[in-house]
Simulated assay, not measured.
Amino acid sequence: MDTPVILKTYYKGKVKEYFAMPEGELHTDLGVIKLEELRTKSFGDRITSHLGIEFVIQKPRAPDLFAHAKRSGAPMMPKDIGVIISNTGLCSSDYVLDAGTGSGILAIYLGGIAKKVISYEIRDEFIGIAQQNMDLAGLSNVELRHGDIVAEIQKLDERFDVITLDTGDAPAVIPHIPRVIYSGGFLAVYSPFFEQTKEIRDALGKTDFTEVRTIETLEREISFTERGTRPATARVGHTGFITIARY
């Protein structure tokens, strides 16, 4: 294989995992792994470090990219991405417009399902990071474009089934979306603050979008110990609001 892999082992009761490419050497606290050996192996096989520690070779998936990809800022959390995917009914025939690429985490999740994703990012340095992450994900159906979505959406001659916005300019983008979205398509807008969310709802109120609702998802992991079972003390609380609207 010549694709990225996850190398995982259980050592002293803990999971250890590494994201790697099949080239060079990987130096870990459990020994050195000669990554060229991966080229003769398949997912599910094992590779051994020079200290004799065995690692299972796994195929990376979107959650692995979320954990290991290079960051350009705080990416959208999987819990919020899940809300977008489930509430828009994203499927394999969909064309998606995404704005506010950042490090490309949302685009990776969308690209793993949709037929085509076009993602706009205004910052040059973020485009470079996102492209590296997209290459690691092995996605050829995600096209990254550099540009200001407020201006670019007014020039687009494409139409989309699903549109996602993770940008402070969302209220200025919304008036132009009806021209580029299919009837029955969905818009999903991420906003971290009440004030921005209110602006988004006001902008949607001036369009023909229907079935508009705003969702906040809170996530609690459950802790299982000898003392008992309870919500974990460390948890992900508020991250942002997701506004879903149908055209």
Rank of each mutant, 00 (worst) to 15 (best):
L165T: 08
A172T: 00
E219H: 14
V236H: 12
I215L: 11
S223I: 07
S183P: 06
E219S: 07
V189R: 03
I177P: 03
I181L: 12
E219D: 10
G168V: 11
R179E: 14
K198M: 13
D208N: 15
E221I: 09
R201F: 04
R227M: 10
P192V: 07
A172W: 00
Q196A: 11
R201K: 13
E158H: 09
T239D: 05
E226K: 13
D161I: 03
K206A: 00
R159V: 12
L204H: 07
G168P: 13
T164W: 09
R220G: 12
V162P: 02
L156Y: 05
P178T: 10
E221T: 10
V236W: 05
E195D: 12
D208P: 06
R246Y: 01
T197A: 14
V173Q: 00
S183W: 06
I153Y: 05
P171S: 02
F224R: 12
S183F: 09
V180I: 13
I200V: 15
L156E: 15
V212D: 00
V162K: 03
E195N: 11
R230S: 04
G184W: 05
T207A: 02
D169P: 04
V180T: 08
G228C: 08
E199D: 15
F186S: 12
V173E: 00
T207W: 00
T233G: 04
K198T: 11
A172E: 03
I181H: 06
F224G: 00
Y182L: 09
T210P: 00
E158D: 13
A203S: 14
F224A: 01
D166Y: 13
R213Y: 02
R246S: 03
T210Y: 04
I153V: 15
T164P: 08
A234C: 02
G185I: 07
Q154A: 13
T210M: 06
G237V: 06
E221G: 09
F224Y: 12
T233R: 13
G185M: 06
H238A: 13
D161H: 09
V189P: 01
G168K: 14
G205F: 00
S191F: 11
E219F: 13
P192M: 06
A188L: 02
A203Q: 06
T243K: 08
H238Q: 09
F194V: 12
T214V: 06
I222F: 11
D157S: 15
D169Y: 15
R179D: 14
S183M: 09
A170S: 15
G237C: 07
F224M: 01
Y182P: 00
T164Y: 10
